[in-house]
Design a protein around this nucleic acid. Structure first.
Lengths: 152, 152
DNA sequence: GTCATGTGGTTCAAATTCGAATTACTCGGT
DNA sequence: ACCGAGTAATTCGAATTTGAACCACATGAC
C-alpha cells in the first residue's frame, strides 16, 4: 500500500467547511422545526416528500431511499406521524406486502403552516449567505456528489 | 406576516443538493470508519481534534463546541473511548471542575492506522468529485455559513 | 406446480442522542 | 469572608436510530 494522498490546504478547508456547515445547519433546522412546528426534521421531510408525490402517497421503501434513512427508522417515524394523524398507511393493491404512506388532510395542513418558518430558517442559515454563483456550485457539485453515492 | 419568499429553482437545487450530499456523505463515512477502524464518526473526530491539539488534550466543553455535539453526548463518547484506552481524562489543575480529554499513545496509534482509509473515503465521496474552483466555493461559502451559525 | 431466491415491511435489542436536572465549583461584588 | 450568578461536567430518562432477524409474499427457473 502506498502513502495516501493527504488533503492539501484547499481540500482540507473545503472538507472542514462542508462538515461544519452540515452539522450546524442540520442542528439549527432541527431546533427551528421542533420549536415552531413540533416536528423533527425527518418527520418534516416525510411530509414534504409525500406532499410532492402524485396522490400524496409513496411506498415505504421508496420513501426510505429518498429520505436516506434506514427502513426501520422510517417505520418508526411513520408510526409517530400516524399516531398524530398526519399520515396513514394504505395497503398496496398490486403487492400484498407493500404499504403506501399517505398524507392526510391534517398532515397537509400542518405542513402548510410549518413551511414558511422552515423556508425562512433555511434562507437564514444557508441560502441567503451565498451568492448565485456559489449556489450554482452547490447545486451542480453537491448534486453530483449525491448522485454518485446513490449509485454505490 | 407577509408571503414568505419561497426558494427559486436554483436555490431549491442548491438546498436539496446540500441536504442529500450531507446525508449520504455522512452515512458513507460512518460506514467506512465502522468497517475499517471500528470507530464511529464522532469518535474519530474526537481523536482527530485531540491529535491536533497541543499536548494532545482539550477541555471537555471546548471539545464539545468544536465537535458540534451536546456536552452530554461528548461525555458518553469520551467514556466509550476511555473504556477502550484510546483517551483518558485528566483533572484540570487550575479549575477543579474542569476535565481534559487526553489522547493516549494507543489512541494516537489507532488514529494513525485509521486515517489513510478515511482520507481515501473522503476523497472518493466528496473531494475528488469536485474541481478546484468548486472546492474553493465550499471552503469560502460553507466556511462562512459555519462561522455565522457559530455566532448565533 | 414447485422450489429457491429475493423483496417489502416490521419487530427487536442495543447503541446513541438530546435536554433538563444535578452537583460542585469559580468569580465578582460587597 | 460571604453571597448570587454563572460555569464545568456528569447523570438521568425519554426519544430516536441502526442492523439483524423475521415473516409473508413475489418472481423466475425448471
Amino acid at each position: 500500500m502506498s502513502e495516501p494522498r493527504w488533503l492539501d490546504e484547499l481540500e482540507m478547508a473545503a472538507w472542514q467547511g462542508f462538515l461544519e456547515a452540515s452539522n450546524r445547519v442540520a442542528r439549527r433546522l432541527e431546533q427551528q422545526l421542533k420549536d415552531e412546528a413540533g416536528l423533527s426534521h425527518p418527520q418534516y421531510e416525510i411530509l414534504v416528500h409525500l406532499a410532492a408525490a402524485p396522490g400524496g402517497e409513496i411506498r415505504m421503501t421508496e420513501l426510505a431511499d429518498r429520505l436516506i434513512t434506514s427502513k426501520s427508522g422510517l417505520t418508526y417515524q411513520v408510526g409517530q406521524l400516524e399516531r398524530r394523524g398526519l399520515v396513514r398507511r394504505r395497503a398496496c393493491p398490486t403487492d400484498v406486502r407493500g404499504v403506501f404512506a399517505v398524507l392526510t388532510g391534517e398532515g397537509r395542513e400542518v405542513l402548510r403552516r410549518a413551511a414558511p418558518g422552515h423556508v425562512a430558517a433555511v434562507r437564514e442559515a444557508l441560502i441567503d449567505v451565498l451568492d448565485r454563483d456559489q449556489l450554482a456550485v452547490l447545486a451542480e457539485g453537491l448534486g453530483e456528489v449525491g448522485r454518485r453515492l446513490r449509485r454505490t
